[in-house]
């Protein structure tokens, strides 16, 4: 099954290697991996998607926690969550055949972010299937896709986060750099 792990890791050299090395050792292919700054100073947040047996989830999470630089690990599994991916798609297009693409972009609620005499670039954010859909339609059309750049999935649980580790850290006095406090939580509208 597809596993989605969300982890907070220390923002230090080599940390990503340690995470990646764990999956290499287990001979598990990483389908996608996104990393960026989080709401906490000094901590990066990553979303890692991989294919592994259902039972493997527990062990992967436990093993991730054994890495000294990994602070929090959430196995999203089937939990209600918001998942997005960003894609940049560059297409060969001249002013003559652009209009069809404009329509397509409208339908898919994407955006044109670059327009050049011989090409244009579409930015699309959405769930994986929508991005796949756009790419498929583009492939079926006459336009030639020049480049595709996809961010990989980013995932966030719906509702207030439930990580006990992060909560414990939030309660920690010397971890003061965080913005929202614990009691600012309320049910978010969807």
């Amino acid at each position: 099954m597809l596993h989605t792990f969300v982890a907070y890791v220390e923002d230090l050299p080599g940390v990503l290697t340690r995470v990646a090395s764990l999956f290499r050792r287990l001979n598990i292919n990483i389908n996608s991996l996104t990393v960026g700054r989080s709401e906490r100073v000094g901590l990066s947040r990553l979303t890692l998607v991989c294919e592994a047996s259902a039972e493997a989830g527990h062990r992967i999470r436990a093993s991730l926690y054994k890495l000294e630089n990994v602070v929090d690990v959430d196995d999203i599994a089937q939990a209600p969550s918001v998942t997005r991916e960003l894609a940049l798609i560059k297409i060969a297009a001249t002013p003559r055949n652009r209009s069809g693409i404009f329509e397509l972009v409208e339908v898919f609620r994407a955006r044109i972010v670059d327009l050049a005499p011989e090409s244009l670039t579409i930015e699309m954010t959405g769930v994986e299937s929508k991005i796949e859909g756009l790419i498929q339609v583009l492939n079926e059309g006459e336009e030639r896709i020049l480049e595709i750049c996809r961010s990989g999935k980013m995932t966030m649980r719906r509702g207030h986060h439930t990580s006990s580790v992060l909560k414990a850290m939030g309660a920690d006095a010397d971890q003061a750099a965080e913005e929202p406090t614990e009691d600012s939580a309320a049910g978010e509208p969807e």
Binding site: H58, R59, Y65, K66
Partner: peptide, 8 residues
């Protein structure tokens, strides 16, 4: 003591 060993 090591959670990664349980059910391995």
């Amino acid at each position: 003591v090591d959670p990664a060993e349980v059910n391995k």
